[in-house]
């Protein structure tokens, strides 16, 4: 009986533990980056997204990261849609899962927002629109 309960606990732990996040796993072991993931970042009452953020330690690691993402000489915040497995590969929205990449040179930060469906896509746009009103450039 003990054995059965232990097996069950192990299965439960893997089930209830955080779902795998490949982007996070890919960057998490990097020594030059602080990598964070926020699962279930709330965009509105009914929609959440998973976010991975990379913060470069210094200018050198930031340049390296920019090179990996195929961008250069960026001064302002920039954003694009990308392939879920390859942030450097830009795509159009077709309804298939994508990541919204947001690059902020001043913060030396890149954010990856996983958009699996139209509801999340729309909710993200609405979030930006609703929150930017008081923060015009």
């Amino acid at each position: 009986m003990k054995k059965h309960i232990l097996i069950l606990l192990f299965i439960l732990m893997t089930l209830t533990a955080a779902a795998q996040n490949k982007l996070y796993d890919r960057y998490a072991s990097r020594q030059d980056l602080t990598v964070a993931r926020v699962d279930g970042f709330r965009l509105n009452d009914s929609t959440k997204v998973d976010v991975v953020m990379l913060v470069a330690d210094d200018a050198t690691s930031w340049q390296k990261l920019m090179k990996e993402l195929n961008v250069s000489n960026m001064r302002d915040v920039t954003s694009w849609l990308a392939n879920v497995n390859n942030p450097a590969r830009r795509v159009r929205w077709t309804g298939a899962p994508v990541i919204r990449v947001v690059v902020s040179p001043t913060r030396r930060t890149v954010g990856f927002y996983r958009l699996n469906n139209e509801a999340q896509y729309d909710a993200l746009v609405d979030y930006q629109l609703n929150n930017m009103k008081g923060k015009k450039k």
Binding site: S29, R37, V38, D39, F41
Partner: peptide
């Protein structure tokens, strides 16, 4: 949010949702 993970310890977890929000805006 539901969950926050970070590859480094000692960082205030609450800053991450705030950062996610700021980046979007």
């Amino acid at each position: 949010y539901d969950l926050i993970c970070c590859n480094r310890s000692g960082i205030d977890a609450e800053q991450w949702p705030a950062l996610a929000s700021d980046l979007l805006i």
